[in-house]
Amino acid sequence: FGIVPRILGILFLARLLIYKLKNKYSPSDNVEKLLQKCQILMPRRYSYPEIKIITGHFKEKLGQGGFGSVFKGSLFDGRAIAVKLLGKAKGTGQDFINEVATIGRIHHVNIVCLLGFCSEGMTRALIYEFMPNGSLDKYIFLRNNRRNHLLSWEMLYKIALGIARGIEYLHRGCDMCILHFDIKPHNVLLDEYFCPKISDFGLAKLSPTQNTMTLSGYRGTIGYIAPQQVSRNFGRVSYKSDVYSFGILLLQVV
Rank of each mutant, 00 (worst) to 15 (best):
L17V: 13
F71L: 01
G56A: 03
L62M: 08
F58L: 06
F67K: 01
L21Q: 14
S26G: 11
K24D: 10
L11M: 10
Q94N: 09
L17E: 10
N30C: 15
Y19C: 12
L35S: 08
L62V: 04
G78T: 04
F67T: 05
S47N: 12
G73E: 00
V70E: 00
I10T: 10
F76P: 00
L16S: 11
K37M: 09
L8Y: 05
F96A: 05
L35E: 08
F67N: 00
D77Y: 01
S74V: 10
L75W: 00
K90C: 05
G73A: 00
S26I: 11
L8T: 04
L21T: 11
E60A: 10
V4L: 09
P43C: 09
P5L: 01
L11N: 07
Q39S: 15
I54F: 06
D95E: 14
S69R: 07
R79H: 04
E50T: 12
G66N: 06
A89R: 13
L11I: 10
F76I: 05
A89W: 06
K90L: 07
S69M: 07
T55Y: 02
L8K: 06
D29H: 15
L34W: 09
P27D: 07
G78A: 03
E60G: 06
E50G: 05
K84R: 01
G66M: 03
T92P: 05
S28E: 15
V70D: 00
F12Y: 10
N30E: 14
I7H: 04
K61A: 07
I10H: 07
S47I: 10
G73Q: 00
L21I: 12
F12G: 09
V4F: 09
L17R: 10
S28T: 14
F96N: 04
S26P: 07
K33L: 13
G56L: 01
R15Q: 11
L85S: 01
G63I: 05
L62K: 04
S47W: 09
A80C: 08
K72V: 01
Q39F: 13
C38P: 02
A14L: 13
C38L: 14
G9S: 06
S28Q: 14
G78K: 02
G87V: 02
L17M: 12
L8F: 08
P5Y: 01
F71G: 03
K24E: 12
Y46I: 08
Y46T: 07
E60C: 10
R15M: 13
G9C: 04
A82E: 02
I40T: 15
V83P: 00
P43N: 08
E60S: 13
I10A: 12
K22H: 12
Q94V: 13
F76Y: 08
G9A: 03
L62Y: 03
D77V: 04
G65D: 01
P5N: 02
D29A: 15
L11G: 07
F96C: 05
E32T: 15
K59I: 07
G93W: 04
R45C: 15
C38Y: 14
Y19W: 13
G65V: 02
L16I: 12
A89I: 13
I53E: 11
T92A: 12
D95F: 08
F76C: 05
S26L: 13
S26C: 11
G56C: 03
G91C: 05
K84Q: 01
